[in-house]
Lab assay of single mutants.
Amino acid sequence: LQLFIKTLTGKTSTVEMEPSDTIENLKAKIQDKEGIPPDQQRLIFAGKQLEDGRTLSDYNIQKESTLHLVL
């Protein structure tokens, strides 16, 4: 599924993920695209901070969801 990652600067990146992927996997993919180390990334979806060990489906993240990346 395609996700949009929006940064505080207003920049939006697109990443392709599976519902079974963990937040950790997602942060690794963001690191590949943006060069931001996972330990500096905080991802927010629906007002919640996402935890590394959980999966996208745990948070009911659907295709074309927008996640907010806070550093």
Score class of each variant (00 low, 15 high):
residue 35 G to W: 03
residue 31 Q to L: 09
residue 53 G to A: 10
residue 29 K to N: 04
residue 12 T to H: 06
residue 40 Q to L: 11
residue 63 K to G: 14
residue 13 S to V: 15
residue 40 Q to Y: 09
residue 71 L to K: 08
residue 38 P to C: 08
residue 46 A to P: 01
residue 9 T to Q: 10
residue 5 I to E: 01
residue 30 I to D: 01
residue 21 D to N: 06
residue 68 H to V: 14
residue 7 T to N: 08
residue 25 N to I: 12
residue 53 G to I: 07
residue 20 S to M: 10
residue 66 T to S: 05
residue 51 E to S: 07
residue 55 T to P: 06
residue 14 T to V: 14
residue 26 L to S: 00
residue 36 I to H: 11
residue 48 K to S: 09
residue 26 L to V: 06
residue 59 Y to T: 01
residue 7 T to E: 07
residue 47 G to K: 03
residue 23 I to A: 01
residue 48 K to P: 00
residue 41 Q to V: 10
residue 71 L to P: 09
residue 45 F to G: 01
residue 4 F to A: 04
residue 46 A to Q: 15
residue 24 E to A: 15
residue 52 D to N: 11
residue 27 K to C: 03
residue 13 S to P: 02
residue 44 I to H: 09
residue 47 G to M: 04
residue 62 Q to N: 09
residue 50 L to P: 01
residue 67 L to W: 02
residue 44 I to A: 05
residue 1 L to I: 15
residue 17 M to R: 00
residue 6 K to P: 02
residue 58 D to M: 05
residue 23 I to W: 02
residue 65 S to R: 03
residue 54 R to N: 10
residue 54 R to H: 13
residue 46 A to I: 06
residue 53 G to Q: 10
residue 56 L to I: 10
residue 11 K to D: 08
residue 70 V to F: 14
residue 13 S to N: 07
residue 18 E to M: 14
residue 38 P to M: 15
residue 23 I to P: 01
residue 45 F to N: 02
residue 66 T to Y: 06
residue 11 K to N: 10
residue 26 L to T: 02
residue 40 Q to A: 08
residue 2 Q to W: 11
residue 15 V to F: 14
residue 8 L to Y: 13
residue 67 L to G: 01
residue 56 L to M: 05
residue 40 Q to V: 11
residue 30 I to C: 01
residue 28 A to T: 10
residue 7 T to P: 05
residue 26 L to N: 01
residue 47 G to W: 05
residue 60 N to Q: 07
residue 39 D to L: 09
residue 47 G to V: 02
residue 44 I to K: 04
residue 25 N to S: 13
residue 35 G to M: 05
residue 24 E to F: 14
residue 16 E to I: 13
residue 44 I to T: 08
residue 46 A to G: 13
residue 41 Q to C: 05
residue 48 K to C: 07
residue 32 D to W: 10
residue 64 E to L: 13
residue 26 L to W: 00
residue 39 D to F: 11
residue 14 T to S: 10
residue 34 E to G: 05
residue 5 I to R: 00
residue 58 D to C: 03
residue 46 A to E: 15
residue 71 L to M: 10
residue 42 R to F: 12
residue 22 T to L: 09
residue 63 K to M: 13
residue 22 T to I: 04
residue 2 Q to H: 12
residue 33 K to H: 09
residue 33 K to F: 09
residue 59 Y to F: 03
residue 52 D to S: 07
residue 66 T to H: 13
residue 34 E to M: 15
residue 42 R to M: 14
residue 41 Q to A: 05
residue 5 I to F: 05
residue 63 K to W: 10
residue 21 D to V: 02
residue 46 A to L: 12
residue 64 E to D: 14
residue 26 L to H: 00
residue 39 D to H: 13
residue 30 I to K: 00
residue 50 L to N: 00
residue 55 T to K: 12
residue 35 G to I: 02
residue 42 R to S: 11
residue 58 D to Y: 15
residue 3 L to V: 09
residue 34 E to I: 15
residue 13 S to Q: 11
residue 36 I to R: 03
residue 68 H to K: 07
residue 4 F to C: 05
residue 8 L to R: 12
residue 63 K to E: 11
residue 54 R to K: 12
residue 68 H to A: 06
residue 61 I to M: 06
residue 4 F to S: 06
residue 26 L to M: 04
residue 57 S to P: 03
residue 46 A to H: 13
residue 29 K to R: 10
residue 38 P to Q: 13
residue 10 G to F: 04
residue 51 E to H: 08
residue 50 L to T: 02
residue 32 D to I: 13
residue 56 L to K: 01
residue 29 K to S: 05
residue 10 G to I: 03
residue 64 E to G: 15
residue 48 K to Q: 14
residue 30 I to V: 05
residue 5 I to S: 00
residue 8 L to I: 12
residue 55 T to M: 10
residue 63 K to I: 06
residue 46 A to V: 06
residue 20 S to E: 11
residue 5 I to K: 00
residue 25 N to W: 10
residue 49 Q to E: 15
residue 65 S to F: 07
residue 5 I to T: 01
